[in-house]
Design a protein around this nucleic acid. Structure first.
Lengths: 122, 122
DNA sequence: TCCATAGTTCGGAACTTTAGAACTATTGAA
DNA sequence: TTCAATAGTTCTAAAGTTCCGAACTATGGA
């Protein structure tokens, strides 16, 4: 099989990272991978944020995240295990990923009203 | 004349901000506006980073930055004065803009050799 | 071997971006 | 007031990107 190339940390670009995280589906996927202790496979995300994402689209999103250097994907048997590259990125662009993740949290927190855990209404 | 609408700070989205800054031309324009004490007009950017940008394209880039809430544009006579909305944004998404600007500096600093001080000359 | 599962690639439709041409708004001079 | 110049916007078509169903590839198990 093809061994799934990942860019070196010195080749990462801010544009690539921002572009990858400027899509809400990718941002949600990345947040989930970054926050979970163990690796995540793609199929765990077929319903991201109450939407059904076709798997060809998901595959493209994972590719975008990989090519931006945000995640590392490794095949384990029939599935792909994805882990975040936060620590590496943070060495090159200190504080960038945490600031973006925190902003996404502020935004989703603000949307569902302080205190309550209401459903998002588009 | 049309008074050029700007989104309220509470309506800004992280996606919009990241998308706006994921284009190198817009990132350069925004960095220049954010770093300069006085307002900047569009024509100052007809050559951004050694490239000649057609003015219709520039106008679209300014519109994207305005609609993402990153800059405020106000007509002063025949030209448009642009100022950054960093302070406002920082109240809603603390640290986001500084982290992105710093990452852009790391990237351009790394590109031109470790000694430099990040800002492109010329 | 064949089948099921997980993910990728292909290709066309839908959407976005780019940039030249035409346009609008403002200023200043005649 | 009219004309010309300057600054920026809007129009529109071509180029580029993204989305998603269908077909495909890779792995593991019966």
């Amino acid at each position: 099989m093809k061994p799934l190339s990942h860019p070196a940390v010195d080749d990462l670009t801010v544009e690539g990272i921002l572009h990858a995280l400027s899509d809400p589906v990718r941002a949600a996927i990345f947040a989930d991978i970054a926050q979970s202790a163990c690796a995540q496979n793609c199929s765990n995300f077929l319903q991201v944020k109450e939407r059904d994402i076709p798997k060809s689209t998901l595959s493209q999103h994972f590719r975008t995240l990989r090519e931006a250097g945000l995640i590392r994907g490794e095949r384990q048997g029939v599935e792909m295990q994805n882990t975040s590259r936060c620590a590496e990125i943070d060495r090159r662009f200190p504080g960038l990923i945490p600031a973006i993740m925190k902003a996404h949290q502020v935004q989703s927190g603000a949307k569902r009203g302080a205190g309550g855990q209401g459903r998002k209404r588009a």
